[in-house]
Design a protein around this nucleic acid. Sequence first.
DNA 1: TCAATCCGTATC
DNA 2: ATACGGATTGAC
Length: 669
Amino acid sequence: MSEQTQPARDSTSARPLVARVAVEMALPHLDRAFDYVVPETMVAEVAVGCRVSVVFSGRRVGGYVLELTRSSDYAATLRPLSRVVSSEPVLSPAIARLARTVADRYAGTLSDVLRLAIPPRHARVEREQPSPTAAAITSEPVGGAAGVAAWRRAHGGVELLGALERGQSPRAAWTALPGDDWADAIAAAVVCCVTSGRGAVVCLPDYRDVARVDAALTRSLGVGRHVVLSADVGPAPRYRAFLAALRGQRTVVVGTRAAAFAPATNAGLFVVWDDGDDLLAEPRAPYPHVREVLALRAHQQGAGLIVAGHARTPEVQQLVESGWLTEVAAGRDTVRQVWPRVLVSGGTGPHPDRDPAARTARLPPDVFAAVRAGLARGPVLLQVPRTGYRTRLACQRCRAPADCPACQGALAQPGPDRPPACRWCGRVECDWRCPVCDGDRLRAPVVGEERTAEELGRAFVGVPVRRSTGETPLGTVPASPAVVVATPGAEPEVEGSYAAAVLLDVGLSLARPDMRAAEESVRRWLAVTALVRPAGDGGVVVVVGDPAIPAVQALVRADPAGFAARELAQRRATRLPPATRLATVEGPTQVVQQLIEPAAVTEATGSGWPEPSELLGPVGVGGGRARLVVRVPWRQGAALARTLSTLQSARSARKAEPLRVEVDPAELG
DNA sequence: TCAATCCGTATC
DNA sequence: ATACGGATTGAC
C-alpha cells in the first residue's frame, strides 16, 4: 500500500521506520512477514533485503527485510529489531518475489526456499575489498565463432542470437547435435545477451559441465565478466561469487542448481542444460526443479530462456507444444549428416560363434564385430547400466512393462514370495493379464551384465581398457584405440570423438520401476551418441536390445523431439505428469489414511482436495509410514499446491509433525 | 469471589 | 518452543 520506494530516514519523522521481516522459521503457519520497528541506532544500517536478527515468540531468530515502510497493519506494539546483521542487501525484491512464487508452486515455505537461494553469510568475505582484477574487464565480448557454428546448424538459431543481441527475450528449446560444442554455443548466446547490456544465468547439472561452460565463457567474454556459483566450491568462494553477482561486479553467473536463484543484474537470459538430469531436481524441501525455477524467473523478469540438451524432456515438449518455447533444432538433412549410424542388435545372451574371442565377450557377433571395427579407428565407448535398480515387472511373453490397471503405476514385486503390487496405489495384482499379448506370467528382468565389460576387455588383447564410473570418473581420454567402459553420466570426453559406442543391455535400463525410465534411458543414450563421430566418418552406435521398443526407435530415427512428443502423448493418455500435476504426501500411516476421507480433508483445509482429484493409495512405505499420491488435471496444479500448503499450516499450527509433501516428485516408482 | 490451573492460540 | 488470554475449577 505505501508505495514509497525510498522512505524518508530523518529522525524527525513522526512515524517510526518499520521493517517487514521474513523470519527464518520453517513452520508453514508462520510463513508470512512480521513487522518490527527499526530503532534509531539501526536506521542508517538497515536496508531492504538485508539480514536482521529479531526476537520472535521469545526466541532470537534470523530474518530478511522484505520491505521498509512507515506503517503497520499490526494492532499491538511492535518489537524492535534486535540487530542488523549486515547491510548487504542479499535478498533483492526480484529474488524475494521469485522465492515466494517457487514456495507457492511447490507447497513449501519461503524460509525453505530462501535457504536454497541465499548462501550462508561469510563475514570475512563480506569485508574483503574486491581484488583489482576481479573488477576489471579484460576484454570486450568477442563472440565465439565455434559456438555460433552450432546455432547456424539449427533452424532459428541465428535468429535467436540476433534477438538476444537486440535486447529481446526469446524463449527456446534447443536440441544440440552430436559434435556440437554446446558449451561454446551457450557461451555465444550469453555473449549476445551481454552485448545488449544485460546479464545472464546458466545452470548445469554437475561441476564438470560448469567447468566446460566456465572455460567457454572465459574464451568469449574474457576474465572479469562472469563468475562460477556452486555449492561445490566451499562456503567462502561461494559467498564471494554470490556477492560479486549481487553487487553487479559480475553480470553473468554460471553454476549448478544453486545458481538458479543467483542474483543477476538486469538479467536478459536464463539457460539450463540437460534438464532431464536428476541433479537439477533439488533434493531439499520444497524440492524445486531448476527448469521450473528458471521458467518462472524468465516469465517474472521478462527475460529470455534457453532449455538446451541432446534430449528433450516431456516437460519441455509440453512448453513447445503450448507455444511458450520455440523449437530450435536442425533439419533432417543436417541431422543425418552429423549423426553416427545406429545399429540395433537384438541378442542379449551368449551366441554360438566360431570366434572364441567373441564367445569370451559374451556378446552377439555383430556387436563384437562393430567393436573390433571401431577399435581399428579410435576409442570405443561402452555404456553399461549401473546394477541394483529396483526392477519393474514385465510380461514374460512379450516383455511389455507391467502397469497397474487402475492407475498406470509400475508393478513391482515388494519382496521375495510376495505377489506383485502397484508401487503407487498398493493394489495387489493376483491375476494379471498383459494388455498387449494377453500373457498371464510376469518376469523380473535379470540384473548382472556388468561383468560383460571386463570380459569384453579381455577379448581384445593389447587394447587398453579404461573404466569411468560415478565414483571414479575419467576426464578426457586420448584419441588412440581403447575400450572405455563407463556408467551413464560418467562418459569421458574424448580428444576428437569416439569411433564407436555400444549401449549394453538397454532392456535393463528400461526396466526401472519409474515413470521416467524410458525418457531417462533415451537421454543417456543420446549423451553417448553425441560423443561418436558421424556415420560418414565411420561412426557407429550399437544398441543391444529389442529394435521394436520406442525408446530404441528414437535413437534409430535420430529423433529426440519425436520421442518427447510420443512420450508426452502417452503421459496424456495415462494421465501422468507433465500432462497432469501430481503430488506425494508421506507421513504416519494413520495420518495419511485420514487424507482419503473427504470430511477430514475439508475440515483440515476448509476446501478439501481440488475438484477433480484422484487419490492413489495410500501405500505403506515401512516404518509405520504411508504415502498417498494425489493427481489433478494440469490446470488444477496451483489449487493442489494451495490445498497442501493449507494442510501443512493447519498441522503445524497444532504442533503436529509436518508431512513430507512433494509436488512434481522427481521420481515416482 | 478470587486465585490457581488448564487449554488453545498467536508468535510483529 | 513460550507467553498470553480466556475459561474452568476449587476453596473460602
